[in-house]
């Protein structure tokens, strides 16, 4: 972490200020279907805040409410101290939104997408031009400025979306599943750009169902499941609370995993049984594995890894994230 030493400074600054986004008892329902069932959270200025959860957890509904394109059914939501029900337009002027599916203007070129978007925010043409140039450089797409949107790759389109969302120099950037559907290399490029925005002190709010993404980008996150928040904290604190330091993954082959649950439980603090493997939560994975081997219990394969948010989610909901 290059800027870890900045931590305390941020803490003092944020604790002195109000949250940029505060939600209390926030509910969204569509007819009888409850998408968000009463959630509370606060996003502080300069923080990268994540909503983690599987599809259908209510993340996108929450993001739409924050983006002022979906009125809350009940409960209280404030951005910059304003209520989206009355001041949606004012709030939206200070937000940047990167939607889950790119909504780029296919009839225009890359740079035109940025220019016309600036006009929607009432930014002068001259100012728009200089910002567009700067932002295309930031997302490393300067040489594609005059290309149409259609032929761009998925990763490039997403970067155009990010550049476009920054055109009004937003106080808060909202990203809904920013790297879903992208190949690993494109994801890393994107993470790098988002990390830079975070270092510049821009407030980021993002949803993801990728653990690695949440761990890399988020200062603090909430875990959502079935429209509710089931846990909250920094990635490290969540892992510390709901998992152990290490995880030992054991595979005994099809149908034989269940036979070894009791043995595994003796060498770790907790065991999760998945269809294809056992997860043994322990402070010392190698040690636990050695103990098992000493007892002549030899799995087909064994892997020791650090525990992750995936394990937190499994602990909290009894389900894996990717069903």
């Amino acid at each position: 972490m290059p800027n870890r030493n900045l931590g305390p400074i941020f803490v003092t600054v944020t604790s002195m200020r109000e949250g940029v986004i505060t939600a209390t008892g926030l509910v969204k329902s569509f007819g009888g279907l409850v998408a968000v069932g009463g959630i509370d959270f606060t996003v502080m200025p300069g923080e990268a805040f994540g909503f983690l959860g599987p599809n259908g957890a209510g993340k996108t509904s929450t993001m739409r409410m924050i983006g002022c394109v979906s009125p809350p059914t009940t409960g209280d939501l404030q951005l910059f101290g304003l209520d989206p029900r009355h001041d949606g337009r004012t709030i939206r002027a200070r937000l940047g939104v990167v939607p889950q599916m790119d909504q780029l203007d296919n009839e225009l070129t890359v740079v035109e997408n940025l220019l016309i978007y600036a006009r929607y925010f009432d930014i002068s043409r001259r100012e728009a031009r200089s910002r567009a140039t700067e932002l295309l450089e930031f997302v490393q797409l300067s040489e594609r400025a005059n290309s149409k949107v259609e032929p761009l790759s998925g990763g490039q389109k997403r970067r155009v979306s990010i550049a476009r969302s920054l055109i009004n120099d937003p106080d808060v950037l909202i990203l809904d599943e920013p790297t879903t559907g992208l190949d690993p290399q494109a994801r890393h490029v994107l993470w790098d750009r988002l990390y830079q925005l975070k270092e510049e002190g821009r407030t980021l709010v993002l949803t993801t169902h990728y653990m690695d993404e949440a761990e890399q980008l988020c200062d603090r996150l909430v875990v959502m499941d079935g429209g509710r928040i089931v846990a909250e904290g920094s990635p490290q604190s969540l892992i510390a609370t709901y998992a152990t330091r290490e995880v030992l993954e054991l595979r005994f082959g099809r149908g034989r995993n269940a036979d070894h649950v009791a043995d595994a439980a003796e060498v770790g603090e907790r065991v999760e049984e998945l269809p294809d493997r056992l997860l043994v939560y322990t402070t010392d994975g190698e040690g636990s594995l050695a103990t098992l081997r000493n007892r002549n219990i030899v799995p087909d394969s064994a892997l020791v890894r650090r525990s992750s948010l995936e394990d937190v989610f499994l602990r909290l909901t009894g389900r894996t994230l990717v069903d």
């Binding site: 004012t90 002027a93 939104v97 599916m101 909504q103 203007d105 929607y120 925010f121 009004n168």
Partner: peptide
């Protein structure tokens, strides 16, 4: 098809 209006509504336009 292009979801243009969804994108426009995230800006201050109504």
């Amino acid at each position: 098809a292009s979801k243009l209006y969804d994108a426009l509504l995230t800006t201050p336009l109504t």
